[in-house]
Write a protein that binds this DNA or RNA. Structure first.
Lengths: 348, 348
DNA sequence: AGGTACGGTGGGAGCGCTCCCAGTCGTGAT
DNA sequence: ATCACGACTGGGAGCGCTCCCACCGTACCT
């Protein structure tokens, strides 16, 4: 504040040079002080710091970026189709986590929405034109060329979620398999005999993992995984409805459903109501994600919570490692999986 | 792509100078072509464009920003306490709108989360250190010093929503009064005799406006605005519950409620159910915002929809005007109010 | 023929930093 | 007293662009 007031109308903000003049030292010295170099005597440092304070000096990041060939910024890339998901706590939590972790680093956060393939293409150019030091990629599809593109231009990047079991790019994911498994174990533990699942699109690894968790739990209970108890959808409400109808027609006797997302669970819940089934008495229902939808359903939905904000934080930490690690080739690609947690509510 | 491939390992991207050399022209000419200046002959332009394509040249924005003393970026500032709202479609829509409108301008979007007062302070310094050309401020409270701070350092800024009736800073707001009025008119039009309202915190202008709309509709119907039919809350679910209980104790006979937000409506709905009232038969309920909550309530909630994405777009347009307008002092501060629309569902 | 306009063009002078290379100076060893 | 050697320091040389001014023609006037 003291600083910002001082230049209101005046010709711009003070520069390094002016600080140097005022402190009676050279530019290099001021730069050293600003950047916390140890090779400065205490006397000098104090003098410079005083000059900085008096002038309200704030380094010009643009100039710094140009000179140092850094950007002091990372981009958070969000594919437009997913922007809908924005409305989910998922994104907001990721952003909050990213923001929190970034706050300590004085890197800036660039938000990049990708709407069209054309923009996706421009993106690679833009990013490589030294506008950012690293990239955070959210909800990347298996066929997205971006990660490999970034790899090729040696741009540090981190994914939220894996594209496949053998993801080569650094990522932060949550334990989808374990989460799904605990959800189904819960259902079985509550005495449900015939537990079905509504999966996401099975070309997405996340959907595969959740199905895998379902299967594991079923088998662990000494049962068979029946094809009739598995219906795949597309993570939408309408998809959830369709899948639920299909399951019901195949196995009218089912008494438990694990939906791989809350939104699909919401769709399923509607169909259950339409067909006169009471949740949880007739059919117990569990979702995944623990979004706002889950809390506002009637009855409130049991769901698997991901440590989403922590994922955002972790992504930044991983990215910083990557940015560092580029110098020493010995560093290996950081990858991590965060635990999930079942949140019990009245639907099961 | 063609461009990005070409330099993989090579020493960095091509520069303006290299393009100039290849095209056999001077730096200035290339710069002119890149920036679409008309003062270039077609022959030359073509030659330069070819060189650009061959080299896969992409201008270095950092250098450009430094030289031109611009940032080619705008900041979207979001106060942390509101980050919760992120989960609402409101924010995601704003962001989507902002992103869409920005896509045509090649300005970048900087996301800035403010968590602590300390960060808020740093922000002013940062912003003024030429890191952005303008600022978009979301959900600003009446006592927020930021707008005036930005005003003082002559940083173009736009608010989403007004702080008061006499907002001096450029803003984009939605028609809260009109929206509330149409909601209440709807309730009255459906034959409701005793319509109450749950307001937001009355120190917020948005809450005042919505209350004003309620009052206008009540008076327009030739009725009195009764104090017993007005309960104020804080935009939270719990607040909605409390307010609903209060209203019910004061006027057990009420048959219509206009809640100034969907979330408060959700709280009210719970109390109505607890007290054995059926929605909409006994009490008709209308909310404001038309968020996901509204669609997922049981029964689905009638609500006032804001053109939120359009607000985002408008904010950018207004900001661009402001950035332009700074040069010619004649331009007046752009301000605009967007219409709302009542979305009818089963709750009324 | 000599002027006068311009449309076009080249390139110097920075923008505010970081990097890095020469110093300068004191200190302890010889 | 001399020398070597760090600890500090100053400032030149850019980073890649935009701005702007001088300059070259050619077309069009007197």
């Amino acid at each position: 504040m003291a600083g910002t007031r001082r230049h209101g109308a005046g010709r711009g903000r003070p520069t390094l040079e002016e600080v140097a003049a005022r402190a009676g030292v050279g530019r290099g010295t001021v730069s050293r002080v600003i950047n916390g170099s140890p090779r400065v005597s205490d006397r000098t440092r104090t003098a410079v710091e005083q000059a900085v304070a008096e002038l309200g000096y704030v380094p010009n990041r643009v100039a710094r970026a140009l000179a140092a060939n850094r950007a002091d910024a990372v981009a958070l890339v969000i594919p437009e189709p997913e922007t809908r998901l924005f409305a989910e706590p998922y994104f907001s939590d990721i952003i909050r986590g990213v923001g929190a972790e970034l706050a300590d680093t004085d890197l800036q956060l660039l938000l990049t929405l990708i709407r069209t393939p054309k923009e996706r293409q421009r993106l690679a150019d833009y990013l490589s034109a030294h506008r950012v030091d690293g990239v955070l990629l959210v909800s990347v599809h298996a066929d997205d060329p971006l990660p490999d593109l970034l790899e090729r231009i040696e741009m540090p990047a981190v994914l939220s979620g894996r594209r496949s079991a053998h993801e080569s790019v650094p990522y932060v994911d949550s334990d989808n398999t374990g989460g799904a498994q605990s959800a189904v174990e819960h259902l079985i533990g509550r005495g449900r005999e015939t537990v079905a699942t509504i999966t996401g699109p099975l070309d997405m690894y996340v959907a595969q993992c959740r199905l895998e968790g379902y299967s594991a739990a079923v088998r662990a209970a000494g049962r068979e995984v029946e094809a009739e108890l598995v219906a795949s959808a597309d993570f939408t409400e309408e998809g959830g409805r369709r899948a639920m109808r299909q399951l019901l027609s195949q196995r009218p006797d089912l008494d438990g459903v694990f939906a791989a997302s809350d939104v699909m669970a919401a769709g399923a819940r509607q169909v259950l109501r339409e067909t006169g089934r009471v949740v949880p008495d007739d059919v117990a229902l569990v979702g995944f994600e623990d979004s706002a939808v889950a809390r506002h359903m009637d009855p409130p939905l049991t769901s698997v919570r991901q440590a989403t904000e922590e994922m955002g934080r972790a992504m930044v930490r991983v990215l910083l490692e990557e940015i560092q690690g580029r110098s020493d080739r010995t560093a290996k690609r950081p990858q991590m999986v965060l635990p999930t947690q079942l949140v019990r509510r009245e639907s099961s």
